[in-house]
Design a protein around this nucleic acid. Sequence first.
RNA 1: GGACGCGUAGCUCAGCUGGUUAGAGCGCUGCUUUCACACAGCAGAGGUCCGGGGUUCGAGUCCCUGCGCGUCCACCA
Length: 941
Amino acid sequence: MTMTDAVPQSPSPALAADELPTTYRAADVESALYARWQAAGTDVASVARVDRTGGTRPPYTIMMPPPNVTAILHVGHGLNNTVQDVLIRWRRMAGDEVLWLPGTDHAGIATQNVVEKQLAAEGSTRQQLGREAFVARTAQFVETTGGAILSQLKSIGASADWTRTAYTLTEPMSAAVTEAFVRLFEDGLVYRGHRVIHWCPRCLTSLSDEEAEFNDTQGAMYYIRYHIADDASRSIVVATTRPETLLGDVAVAVNPTDERYTDLLGRELVLPLNGVRIPVIADDYTDADFGTGAVKITPAHDPNDFEVGTRHQLATPVIMDAEARLNGLGDAVDRVPPELRGVDRFEARQRIVNMLRDIGALVKIEPHAHSVRHCYRCDTVVEPRLSDQWFVKMAPLATPALEAVRTGRIRIMPERWEAVYINWLEGIRDWNISRQLWWGHRVPVYYCDDCGTAPKASRMPITHCSECNAPARQDEDVLDTWFSSWLWPISTLGWPNSDSADLKAFYPGDVLVTAPEILFFWVSRMIMSGYQFMGDAPFHTVYLHGTVRDMQHRKMSKSLGNGIDPMDVVTLYGADALRWTMVAGMGLGVDVLLDPTDLEKSFAPGRNFLTKLWNIGRFLLTKVGTEPVQPLSAIAPDTLTMADRWILDRLDVAITDANDALGPVRPGPSGRWTEAERTMGMRLDAYADAGRRFVWNELADWYLETVKPRLTAGGPDAEVARAVLVHAFDGALRLLQPVLPFITETLWAKLPPLADGSARGGEFLCTTAWPEARTETRSSAVSGDAFELVRNATLAIRQVRNEYKVKPGKVIEVTLVPAAPDAAAAPLLLETIGALTKATVSLHPVADVPAAHQVLAGGTEVVIALAQLRDELSVDDTAKEVARLRTEIDATQKILDGVRAKLGNESFTSRAKPEVVEGARAQERDLAQKVEALTRKVEAL
RNA sequence: GGACGCGUAGCUCAGCUGGUUAGAGCGCUGCUUUCACACAGCAGAGGUCCGGGGUUCGAGUCCCUGCGCGUCCACCA
């Protein structure tokens, strides 16, 4: 049974307190409420409602970064999706037709690795199974385990459009991948390249530059002596970090200007261990100041050496196999001595070093720190490998993507990433898209081995050669996972079908929310594909959020065991607490720090605020009851008390602050962000703070306290108070719905009906309107600002009570001496202050007795006779009070002097902004009054 | 090696185009279990805004520099 169900729609005058437990129990509410949203279709996007396709609403589209299909939700996903959900829920209320499109990624290498591990556990391999069976088995695995993450996303409240859930290996998505490949192939932007690429000897596939990550490693530099052929007296010492590759050397290169080696240019050296003769060549690539100034050139096993080798038309002997064991391939078979054949590269390194030492060719070994590339999926050291791969020519694609950011079509937040993005695109290199895997989209290229006609890329499978009708053979490789990911914003909407209604309605989209780590992998490539295939960017804002880390600032990871399971948090404190903690604690682009060993402390902000909000609701709903309440519009303005005006003003401020924090939704008519707009908005923490401040520090701490007696008093004023109370809370719930969808919806459902029978905007809070600040100016006799006097007087009295340690229950007498008496407000004002401070407050001046004095801004004095604070007065008390006043006078005078000095300065009054100067003048008046009043009091004592 | 960012209360961080007495959350101290909430209320302590120069009537905010930390990029074998 849900909380909502538990409350009958009975016309009982008051909501029984026991219908609402004292603490919010998320577990009783969340899943059932989510199911009701789902049943009502609150998060399903409608093409018909979009203005681009005949409707009236602007679309607001976010594509969910698809998690790996086999992934389990971690707290990083939680953060990422919460941010998206906040934006989506905000815009949904604000009247946009929102589409948040969810889905999963087949994750080529990652998924294949998981299944291969399973096979290994069964004592099998994918090769034993064969390609078809392996793919079937992997698909089966995905079928049974995949999608779990999507239901976990539902548990944290993600209001995505699940009717459009996508998966990169479905038929339509595969068609998009093939279409993109074939178009690029036909345009000459996809080509076959023969070069040294990054190879993972464990995954047995090539990797793109981005997938081969640098890790700083403490290695060694080996100095090895190569002798000149036929001249034992001459030699060159080369420096290398990878001595095992010397078997594949084809030359030693020196800088042409390096005089040390000039006379050896063109001579031949003898490779130790295999006796192969190689030339000494000159090439600018070599830096004379590094190492010995002589570089061994191994074209098949180093990308730079490959370049050098190409320039000098050198051979490319391969001396390692796919598993990175020493083995001479083809002509190079004799380059590897028999005793080293089949030896793993790292073992071989050790053995070769020993062999070199034995023959006296090892000069020295020095420690050497350098960066080594590792496989981003299995962390194996990547082996440069000469092979044939498919590449995408990136420079033409990068041009519009660069322009997009430069001209403001796209903004990247935080802004500093724009420079990184531009820097990367300017130096972009071609993208290796073929992978020697089985799990993924197979390269749609077909070969004829018979007549040798040129390979063809095809949208449809080719079974026979068009030239000679021999059986055609499809390329064995699959495409990089990111080759399907980069199409995500268009393929999920139906591309390449240009008639797709979704594509017309929701492309281009709006915001992309992700982590900076995949700026190159994914974000920039989506921008490129958007321009290439649709002629426009897929979104106008890239929001890069921080990483969730532990208290030692370490990234949370499975291997470190420092992760937080979001589901644990949901179970303990609720999805809203998880969401609130992350959103409220996250500056733009700032990492979120959470302690995995202390969930209680980590999620205290969320849990505490939920409980507070719940209790505010509990109290308010109990007091207000279930009788119909007047809409605010039906309340005559002059019946509003100053407290009413104050809280309504504060609500306006909260709404304005929230809107400012969230910022401009989309660029203006030009379609481009202005320079100023690039950095505006998307401050989710500031938005959350505006909501928290209103509901906790203003509504609960002040307004609720003052409204209590009015409600119990009954009569017309009680109706006014009810109306304002309900309106203010309704506004607060609307404001907080995007971050706290469950608790706000639950409380909102319990608000009493409106007396005019209007429906308050529908069945669900999540689909009602975003609150709007009132535009009409305040026009009452009693301004909401007057309530500030109540607040200040209350604070002053409390301070005195605390200072003199007056018992909490003791009622004291307080005299207020207003600087500018407001006759109309006075009675209520006094009563309210009294209620807030356990005091009887009067305006009658008291005789000059020993008293505590407080002077408020504006000059109103608060006087509390000391006699009632102390059982017996002593001289000390008066002296103490005098001393306190003197201290305060000094402090105030100091500030006043500062302000006066400033105002006396010509440069300030003439150059500072008028409102700043005016503020200083007002401050001067207040401070002067205060000093004067305080001084009078000291004299009186 | 290049580029960028950060260094503000015990901790994590806000502080927009320089202008009131620098803020929040968590933590800490004292008081209070008052009939919404102790996951609370009230009052409070705590900051040379990393150091040093400079620009300015005025700098946490701009410039230079030193120190410390971090991120991204990069073929130095």
